[in-house]
Simulated scan of single mutants.
Amino acid sequence: MSKTPPARGNGKAIWLLVILLVLIAAGGSAAGVYFLMGKGAHAATDRAEAAAEPMPAPIFVPITPFTINLRSAEREERLLYVGLSLQVTDKASEEFLKQYMPQLRSRLLKLFAAQTAAELMTPGGKDQLSAKILEMLQQPMATPQPTLRVTDVLYTDFIVQ
């Protein structure tokens, strides 16, 4: 009975195969990290480019100042001098408000005249007045009327005397 000695080359082949598989796995993971990092850098670049785009210029519709007699419980003379601008988001709203300025001024005059000096002297009173103006602008001035996109009421002059 003769025994054949085991082949010594098979052990080296197994180790070479294991080393080769480890190198392939390491190369694949390095390629994956490179790909993901490259995508992250591109996403950061895209965000930076989006942030660098200029914001559209705000559009303001100025309204010439009013002088209004305020109602008073004590029957004393109180005056309000108020100037304001409306901030809009589009040219259509700006053009419509300019075209209907006399009607807008009339509505604002009636709204201001319904206020009291005590209400308007507080910051909360000014905020409430702004909310009333925005609400008033939701009521149509013409038929048909485009949707007015007024985002803010900005006071340029405000004196209660």
Rank of each mutant, 00 (worst) to 15 (best):
T122G: 06
P146Q: 09
V82W: 02
N69W: 15
S85H: 02
A52M: 02
R107C: 02
G32R: 06
M121Y: 15
A92E: 09
A26H: 12
S106K: 14
L148H: 11
M1E: 10
A7E: 13
L129Q: 13
L17C: 01
A50R: 11
S85Q: 04
I63H: 03
G40W: 15
R47D: 13
Y34N: 04
S85C: 00
L17G: 10
N69Q: 14
Y81Q: 04
F96S: 01
G32A: 05
A92W: 01
S106M: 11
S29W: 14
S2T: 05
Q87E: 15
N69P: 09
R47S: 13
L21E: 12
L120D: 11
K12P: 00
F96K: 07
P144M: 05
M136R: 01
A7C: 04
Q161W: 09
I24C: 10
R105H: 12
L111K: 12
Q115R: 08
E49S: 03
L17V: 03
Q145Y: 00
T147H: 05
N10R: 08
L154A: 12
G9W: 14
T156G: 05
T67H: 11
N10V: 13
M121Q: 14
M37C: 05
A117C: 04
D152Y: 04
P5H: 12
R107E: 15
A41N: 09
D152T: 01
L17S: 09
L137H: 09
Y81D: 06
S93C: 01
G83C: 03
L134E: 03
Q139G: 00
A142W: 10
I19E: 12
E119D: 11
Q161Y: 05
P102V: 11
G11K: 06
G11Y: 15
F96N: 06
G38Y: 13
Q115L: 01
V18Q: 05
S72H: 15
K91I: 06
V61E: 11
P58C: 05
Y34C: 00
H42E: 14
E135T: 01
V33T: 06
L134Q: 12
A50S: 07
L104Q: 07
A13G: 02
Y100M: 06
L109R: 14
K132R: 05
T122V: 04
Q99V: 03
A131T: 03
K126S: 03
L84A: 07
M141W: 10
L109A: 15
Q87H: 10
I63M: 01
S106T: 10
Y81H: 06
L109D: 15
V33M: 09
M101P: 09
S85T: 00
P102C: 10
A92I: 05
A13V: 11
F60N: 05
L120V: 09
A41V: 09
Q145P: 03
P62H: 08
S2Q: 12
E119W: 09
E119I: 04
P6F: 03
R47P: 02
L108N: 13
T156S: 15
K126P: 00
T45I: 01
P54Q: 02
A41R: 10
K12R: 07
I24V: 10
F158C: 00
A51E: 15
L80C: 08
Q139H: 03
L23G: 11
K110P: 00
L134H: 01
S72G: 13
Q87F: 06
S93V: 00
K3P: 02
M121K: 11
R149H: 09
F66M: 07
Y155V: 00
I133H: 08
P65G: 06
E135A: 01
D46Q: 10
F66R: 08
L21S: 08
D90E: 07
L120G: 11
